[in-house]
């Protein structure tokens, strides 16, 4: 791989977004390194989804900058890119896993086409190859190859989520954003999905930013975590350190309330 492991993949500096008088998120800065998984945790309304949307170019921030290291090694401000460049990035080098799979899938086309779409968008024109890769990826997310021509409408919630993950990973992205990827799933299904996600991330050397309200998810999947409250980052550190030795009083409260349950 030609990734320069000594430099951050994403550099976020002073990012903020307001909704009128209300703060969405404010003054967020961090670096994300290649192969690193960062969890953003907090209660609903803490600004974590606003931040994720800002980072993934889905919502333009009104302060700060977000720079991404392209495959060419160049550091680019994602909001200074032309729309064509940005869209290209989003369908090749980046992935976005929505909480609700229906938001990230085409529900009326087959699983194979869902996975193949990104390949076709970047110019692959061999039906057999596209289909072969789709079947391979369905296997990697534990979906049987005979479901390749079925529409996601016929899939269970857990299968849909795994299909969404396959659809995102088929172009071997370097950075994946995830918004509550296990939200809305049964506990047993959640555990299986997390396990799968963890092994895929490790195997592919992916960087990921995962938004979750669930500290158990953060512990299982992330290397580092940021705790948000009222739009601001109140604690930031290695996941094990933050969960085992929380410094901020709010984090202590959050951790103790979870562990007591």
């Amino acid at each position: 791989m030609n990734i320069d492991d000594d430099a951050p993949l994403l550099t976020v500096n002073g990012v903020g977004k307001r909704y009128g008088n209300r703060i969405g998120c404010a003054d967020v800065s961090f670096d994300l390194w290649p192969g690193e998984v960062l969890a953003i945790v907090g209660e609903s309304g803490s600004g974590k989804t606003t931040l994720l949307n800002c980072l993934s170019t889905r919502l333009e921030p009104d302060a700060g900058s977000i720079c991404y290291r392209t495959r060419g090694g160049e550091m680019r401000d994602v909001y200074q890119m032309r729309e064509a460049e940005r869209r290209f990035l989003m369908r090749t080098d980046w992935g976005f896993v929505h909480q609700n799979p229906a938001d990230g899938l085409r529900m009326t086309v087959s699983a194979g086409a869902n996975v193949g779409e990104r390949l076709m968008a970047v110019g692959e024109r061999h039906y057999g190859d596209i289909r072969g890769k789709a079947i391979d990826w369905l296997g990697r997310v534990e979906i049987a190859s005979d479901r390749v021509d079925d529409q996601p409408r016929a899939f269970s919630g857990g299968m849909r989520q795994r299909l969404q993950i396959a659809r995102n990973l088929v172009t071997h992205p370097r950075l994946v954003f995830m918004d509550e990827p296990t939200g809305g799933l049964d506990v047993s299904v959640q555990a299986r999905l997390l396990d799968l996600l963890r092994s895929l991330v490790a195997e592919l050397g992916l960087s990921a930013i995962v938004v979750t309200h669930d500290l158990a998810v953060a512990r299982l999947i992330s290397h580092r975590m940021m705790v948000m409250k009222d739009g601001r980052v109140i604690e930031h550190g290695l996941t094990d350190r933050v969960l085992d030795d929380p410094h901020a009083p709010y984090t202590q409260l959050l951790v103790s309330s979870i562990l007591q349950v």
Binding site: R87, A113, G116, M120, A121, V148
Partner: peptide, 19 residues
Amino acid sequence: HALEEYGLMHVKLYEDIAR
């Protein structure tokens, strides 16, 4: 058209062949 995003058109053709 402006961004040459024609992947969706091939999705349609892919679906035809699959079916």
